[in-house]
């Protein structure tokens, strides 16, 4: 017995040896508390997404910032998943790398399990035999952009519910097969004031463009134009002017869409202090994924800056 009351009645180490913590859960054995991300460290800025006639354009610059320091200048933030889906990451870069590993293991898992053949993919079967690489793959039911978005948003929502968030805002872009025609009980009202739903199911089962957002809280939404971070303020108004709704997106050509996104990337470089002039741009359509990772900003000119007056201490 000694003078420390908290030791009374407990086995002494000099007689019984040190307490064996090994059977305890890691959090108890470790005298340090488990730590969760309370704020992001190395971050990526905006990701832009724009739907067009038969696909989606996705863009993000190649910068990873450490606070206001432009720390890493060749970080690729667009991650292709398969020929139908690409994910663009904003926010914490280490969490992006974790999610990328998670998606890679998911992809491996999906390809090992004998996925059933589907009649949906038969429509594009003739094109499938053309490219040698994915001929066999074409007959398998692969995870499309919508499936992937559901998966990622559930991962993000689970982690926020555990108070251990993955500090990202992501865009999932690609193709999905629309659901079969609406149930018979659900009829549209014949009223003249009503219009059809903007995202009504298409009559054919041909894959359609898909673009959706998910973030660290598990919040999800979908729109023909999307942007994360600063892009939500600067790029979305530019993109929405060209593509106000799904109908406008269905008329937009691939070239027009790429041009609009490039214009937005330029505006973001001018006005977002955490951006850079080298970016990745990805087009996903029926032909597959076309990813360019080292695009330089074209036609950059700071001449407009000379006309700006009236900020700060400037008195002219």
């Amino acid at each position: 017995m000694n003078h420390l009351p908290q030791a009374w009645g407990r086995p002494r180490d000099d007689i019984y040896g040190a307490y064996d913590h090994s059977y305890l859960p890691q959090t108890h054995a470790n005298t340090h508390p488990t730590t969760h991300t309370q704020s992001p460290v190395v971050t990526g800025t905006s990701v832009l997404g724009l739907k067009f006639k038969d696909g989606v354009v996705l863009a993000a610059d190649n910068l990873a910032s450490y606070g206001s320091l432009a720390r890493f200048t060749d970080v690729k933030r667009l991650k292709p998943f398969n020929r139908k889906a690409v994910v663009g990451f904003g926010g914490d870069v280490s969490d992006m790398q974790y999610l990328d590993r998670l998606l890679n293991s998911l992809d491996v898992q999906e390809n090992y399990s004998g996925a059933a053949t589907t009649e949906e993919d038969d429509g594009e079967a003739p094109a499938a035999t053309a490219d040698g690489e994915g001929g066999e793959d074409k007959h398998k039911a692969i995870l499309d952009a919508k499936n992937l978005h559901t998966y990622l948003s559930k991962v993000l929502y689970k982690r926020r519910s555990d108070f251990n968030p993955l500090w990202n805002a992501i865009l999932v872009a690609g193709l999905t097969t629309p659901p079969p025609p609406a149930p018979s009980t659900s009829t549209s009202s014949p009223k003249d004031t009503t219009t059809s739903k903007p995202t009504g199911p298409a009559p054919s089962r041909k894959p359609i463009p898909y673009l959706a957002y998910a973030d660290l809280l598990g919040t999800t939404y979908s729109s023909p134009t999307l942007a994360t971070g600063f892009g939500a303020h600067l790029a979305v108004p530019i993109m929405r002017r060209a593509v106000p709704d799904e109908a406008a997106a269905a008329k937009l050509s691939r070239e027009e869409a790429v041009e609009i996104v490039k214009k937005c990337m330029k505006v973001l470089f001018y006005r977002d202090a955490r951006s850079m002039n080298e970016y990745s741009l990805c087009v996903i359509d029926g032909k597959g994924v076309d990813l360019q990772e080292n695009i330089k900003l074209e036609g950059e000119s700071w001449a407009f800056a000379e006309g700006i007056k009236g900020y700060g201490t400037q008195t002219v």
């Binding site: 000694n2 420390l4 908290q6 407990r10 002494r12 180490d13 000099d14 040190a18 005298t31």
Partner: peptide, 18 residues
Amino acid sequence: AFTSYVSSAGQPSYSFPQ
């Protein structure tokens, strides 16, 4: 932190942090 409460002098120590 694991080993800090096992004294190097061989004195009695305890199975929980002091």
